[in-house]
Structures are given as structure tokens and as C-alpha cells.
Computed example of a mutant assay.
Amino acid sequence: MGMQQTDEQVDIVDEEHVVGLSGAALFAALTGALAYLSIPYPLSPAPVTLQVLGVFLTATFLGAKWGGVSAVLYVQAGALGAPIFAGGGAGLGTLLGPTGGYLWSYPIAVALMGWLAYGQLGIGSPSETGTTRLVAALAAGTLVIYALGTAQMMVVSDLAIVEAIWVGAVVFFPAEAAKIAAAVAVVRSGAVPDWSAEGIASRR
């Protein structure tokens, strides 16, 4: 009996790693693809992109741990030269430039959003998470993204704090609210499969 339980626990752990790693790679690629949809924004040095929508979806479907891994993979791949940052940008120059703080923030923001949404490190089930809780988690992650993004923009571009907050954060809030709504709509539509253990079991 003890041996059977041990084998089952090993199978569950192995499956979690397979699902987590494959999900991390998939959502890192999705975030990179969405980053190509970039529009210059006259009110800020940073463009308007759908990149953050990818970050929201990563946190929502992969949770804190594997979502964080995905965000790290995304930033590392871009740093090594993969053209997956906003508008096809890449390299350390982008990470160290005025908009680099947004990119650095992604792993932290994803981990926070995943934890707030599910109260655990592992992959949670979006369908079992209330809309209010999900929106609150994504909003908290947005604040992290714009806090770090604004801080680096202020330093690199030598902006006063009020100006940096305005051009680095406030002018983007309507767009981010729309992305949060879009992420929640994707979750509620069921268009993306549930990556949690419960969701996978229900599809077998």
C-alpha cells in the first residue's frame, strides 16, 4: 500500500513538472507574440502593446511558480537576443533602457498575481476563482509592473517623479484596465484549457 502511494505521488510530481515546463515555454512564446502588437504612444516613451495581456494570462493559467518560471524564460530569451520584446526588440540594451523596468517586473508581478489568485504556488483552476479575486490579483500585478517600470524610466530618462508617474504609468491605466477585462473574458470563455491538475483530469 505504501509503495503504491509513493508511486502515485511520484507520478503526480512528474506530471506537474511536465505540465509546468511545457506551459512555461508556451506562455513565454505567447507573451513574445503579443509584444509584436506595439503602437507608439505620444504620451509616453513606452509603447502600447498587448505584452502585458500575455503576462496576465501567464499568471492566470500557470499560477505563481510556473508562471514565474515562464516570465523568467521570456525575459532571459529576450536578453539573449530573441526579438520578443515590444515591437520585436531584444537584448540587454532594452532591459537597461528607459522601458526595461517593465520587463524586469514581469517575474515578480506574475508570481504575485498567481499567489493572490489562488493562495498557493502551484497551478490553480481559473474557473473556480471568483471574478473579483481574479481582477484584484491582476490589478495588484499591474501596480508592480508600473511601479518598477516608472522607477527605471525616471532614473534612465532623468525625469522628475511626477512626470515619470504620469508618462510611465497613469497614461496607460485605461489600456491596462481593458487588458484585465480581456484576460478575465478569456478565462470565462473557456477558450484556453485549464492547466491545473483538476482541469487535466476532467479532460481525460
Results as ranks from 00 to 15, higher is better:
1 M>A: 13
1 M>N: 08
4 Q>Y: 06
5 Q>D: 15
6 T>D: 11
6 T>P: 01
9 Q>A: 15
14 D>F: 15
14 D>A: 15
15 E>H: 06
15 E>F: 02
16 E>W: 00
19 V>H: 05
20 G>Q: 05
21 L>V: 12
25 A>T: 04
26 L>K: 05
26 L>I: 15
29 A>F: 10
31 T>E: 00
31 T>H: 00
36 Y>C: 08
36 Y>A: 07
38 S>T: 06
40 P>H: 14
41 Y>V: 12
41 Y>C: 12
42 P>F: 10
43 L>V: 01
48 V>S: 07
53 L>C: 13
53 L>T: 00
53 L>F: 12
55 V>Y: 02
56 F>E: 12
61 F>A: 06
62 L>M: 12
63 G>T: 06
63 G>S: 06
65 K>I: 08
66 W>M: 01
66 W>S: 03
67 G>A: 11
67 G>I: 05
67 G>P: 02
68 G>A: 03
70 S>Y: 00
70 S>T: 07
75 V>W: 09
76 Q>M: 14
77 A>Q: 07
77 A>V: 00
78 G>R: 03
83 P>G: 10
84 I>Y: 05
84 I>E: 01
84 I>G: 01
85 F>C: 12
87 G>A: 14
89 G>V: 01
95 L>Q: 06
95 L>M: 13
97 G>D: 11
98 P>T: 15
99 T>S: 13
99 T>M: 00
100 G>Q: 11
100 G>E: 06
101 G>I: 09
102 Y>T: 02
102 Y>H: 07
105 S>L: 09
106 Y>I: 00
107 P>T: 14
107 P>M: 06
109 A>E: 10
110 V>L: 08
113 M>I: 03
113 M>H: 02
113 M>W: 00
116 L>C: 05
117 A>G: 11
120 Q>D: 11
121 L>T: 04
122 G>V: 10
123 I>G: 06
123 I>N: 07
124 G>S: 08
126 P>G: 09
127 S>P: 03
133 R>G: 15
136 A>P: 02
136 A>N: 04
138 L>K: 08
139 A>K: 04
142 T>V: 05
142 T>D: 07
143 L>P: 02
144 V>T: 12
144 V>H: 08
145 I>K: 09
146 Y>E: 04
146 Y>M: 13
146 Y>C: 06
148 L>S: 03
151 A>Q: 04
153 M>E: 10
153 M>S: 05
153 M>C: 10
156 V>K: 11
157 S>I: 01
160 A>I: 01
162 V>N: 05
162 V>H: 09
163 E>V: 07
163 E>S: 09
163 E>L: 04
164 A>P: 13
165 I>T: 04
165 I>L: 15
166 W>G: 03
167 V>D: 08
168 G>L: 01
171 V>P: 01
172 F>P: 07
175 A>N: 15
176 E>A: 02
176 E>W: 02
176 E>F: 02
179 K>N: 11
183 A>F: 01
185 A>K: 12
185 A>L: 14
188 R>I: 11
190 G>K: 04
191 A>Q: 09
195 W>E: 00
196 S>F: 06
197 A>D: 13
197 A>C: 03
197 A>E: 14
201 A>R: 14
202 S>R: 15
202 S>K: 15
203 R>F: 12
204 R>S: 14
204 R>C: 08
